[in-house]
Design a protein around this nucleic acid. Structure first.
Lengths: 362, 362
DNA sequence: CTGTTAGCGCCTTCAT
DNA sequence: ATGAAGGCGCTAACAG
């Protein structure tokens, strides 16, 4: 527990001899002003027992007047707790992650922690460095969406002894706590939906092959095909798509002289879907009449497109919040591992609903 | 300067008597192992002069072997520098701000700082609290996009003596450093573009009236109208729009039995534009044939819409980077205030280009 | 070149 | 119920 936070501002009114620079009020100033000893102040301010209500009042008043703010560094040095949680994400500019971080921020606030943010840009070296920084920062815990091109960084993190939880992605062969979305189910729902609407030639523009979300969604995709006795065609599966541009180029490749010609797309993210949609339009095809498409994540704009996007909704903020609460338990030494899968949900909109959506096609 | 960073990991190998928990290696352990005094180690590690190369080598070796990582808290307590910069944004889930933060993160990395993030959700009370937290965190400096419903929080920040820079928004009546976009110019460019394409009934779905960006864009809007001798009609100006939903409702209000009937929209953001576009479509109108629309920010998806969105491009990452560099100067006591306006640019796409874009309409 | 000393602000024994 | 003393890990004088 990072200790409760209460603030009254921070200006001392004192002025350094040298120039115009302020010096922060310390517990000492408060003690002097209240006419008590340093640690009586400490105890009063931290709500510890054994403090005369009257002196407590005096102390609180003095603190208020002097605009005292506790120094977290000093406190941290003593208590070995910084009240800071390190958050390492793959790309903060991606609405998926920024929504997640937003949720973390909210959850963390109630607990009195702060967040230090690191962005790896999906780059493993950056991830390694980010972890070292977190260690040096003495964070009380770490939340990380690993890049996954290598697992050694996570193994090191494990060795370091810092409590940590993987978020959004996890390793099948490294035993850690994690909070992820139920991606198998997501892949399954999306694919089943397309199949049930008569599509059989469903192309899957998937994420990188090392990415756990991509792996699990593919599993869901395969499961759905199998259940409906549709033969898997490797040519319809493409991987490595993360951006809009990737979606565009993969979409294009799948449409131009491609065998078999897909009649529907399932994509790794709404961003990828957007790129693919552009490719579809440029190929002179209509959505959903000629090609249906289903995205993933349910990012805000998806509902507002001219042809609104059917997608798998992931509870991004909730996932962030949940991750914090799992991490907090770890920090508080409450044993037992958490392997959490957040439920996902198919949001059916226009992009997958052709008016002539009966019977089999292609 | 937050002191150079160098890491070697952090596990000591030591085990506490009590249980399996690690204890971090301290400078003391290194000193003992290297057979020198504590502060020789400190100096060696910090690259200070007056250290025998040979002993330095010994110390570095020992540090390496023991996996020593400096304790930033202790260092900060002494040096009064935490190497942390506080970033307070209005909404990290907004792509505009997340792109900005991404830029800050990159810039900060090179300088050896870390970032503590706070999200106010456009709420003033949260902003006040965020500032207090930053003080308590002893950050070396603060970057903030103020909510602007009240300026007292900023005045307090000023009093606190912490170096800070406003980003993306600024106060006309509070003298601070800031890095913002050239919003007058942005409003002017967008409006002029519409006018030059024959539109005269240009509705402006603007942001909150206290928001400096909204104020300045309105200024640009008015300037453009004036230059073209188009009479300003207050009924075409709406304020308070921040979200997609706001854009939708304002758009709707402007289209249903509205006098005068607008022929073009200029909106506060691409998000707001997206909402307005939905309203336009629902009113049975076409973009851009019936209603042209210009957004603001140039958020990634804008280019990929079926009718791609004409918008004012703001250099979000660059603004973040610039803000960091200005802040760094302040931290290093380099005097002189910075009032920076980042250039903006009109990106013309389909949403403002009717095929029959000649002559005057409406 | 190197070691000794002192203290940053806070909290935690231990006395009183 | 309160105060005094010690120390978290590190850096910055000042000696030697």
């Amino acid at each position: 527990m990072p200790g409760e936070r209460w603030y009254i501002g921070n200006v001392t009114g004192k002025v350094l001899s040298g120039g115009g620079k302020m010096e922060r009020t310390t517990i000492r100033d408060v003690a002097r002003t209240a006419g008590v000893s340093i640690n009586t102040v400490s105890r009063a301010l931290n709500g510890k027992p054994d403090v005369n209500p009257e002196t407590k009042r005096l102390i609180l008043e003095a603190a208020e007047r002097l605009q005292y703010t506790p120094n977290k560094l000093a406190r941290g040095l003593r208590s070995k707790k910084t009240g800071v949680i390190g958050v390492i994400v793959a790309d903060i500019a991606n609405p998926f992650f920024s929504a997640m971080v937003k949720g973390m921020g909210k959850a963390v606030k109630e607990l009195g922690y702060s967040i230090i943010l690191q962005d790896t840009s999906e780059n493993y070296e950056n991830e390694e460095e980010a972890i070292l920084i977190m260690q040096s920062e003495q964070v009380d815990g770490v939340l990380i969406t690993p890049v996954q091109t290598d697992k050694r960084s996570i193994l090191k993190l494990q060795e370091s002894g810092i409590p940590f939880v993987l978020v959004a992605r996890h390793f099948s062969d490294v035993d850690t706590d994690y909070v992820v979305a139920d991606d198998v189910q997501g892949g399954y729902l999306a694919t089943t939906h397309l199949i049930e609407n008569g599509y059989t030639k469903i192309a899957f523009i998937n994420g990188p092959s090392y990415n756990s979300s991509a792996i699990e969604r593919l599993e869901g995709y395969k499961k759905a095909l199998e259940e409906h006795n549709i033969e898997l065609n490797e040519k319809l599966i493409r991987s490595g798509a993360l951006t809009m541009e990737d979606g565009y180029s993969h979409g294009k490749a799948l449409l131009i002289d491609h065998d078999p010609q897909p009649t529907a797309f399932f994509t790794f993210s709404d961003f990828v879907a957007l790129g693919a949609m552009k490719a579809i339009r440029e190929a002179g095809l209509r959505i959903p009449e000629d090609i249906a498409i289903v995205g993933y994540d349910d990012i805000p704009f998806s509902s507002c497109l001219k042809v609104s996007l059917t997608t798998v909704k992931v509870l991004k903020r909730e996932m962030g919040k949940k991750a914090i609460s799992v991490l907090e338990k770890k920090i508080d030494e409450q044993e037992g591992q958490s392997h959490l899968k957040m439920p996902v949900d198919l949001v059916i909109r226009q992009s997958s609903l052709s008016t002539r959506n009966l019977g089999t096609r292609g």
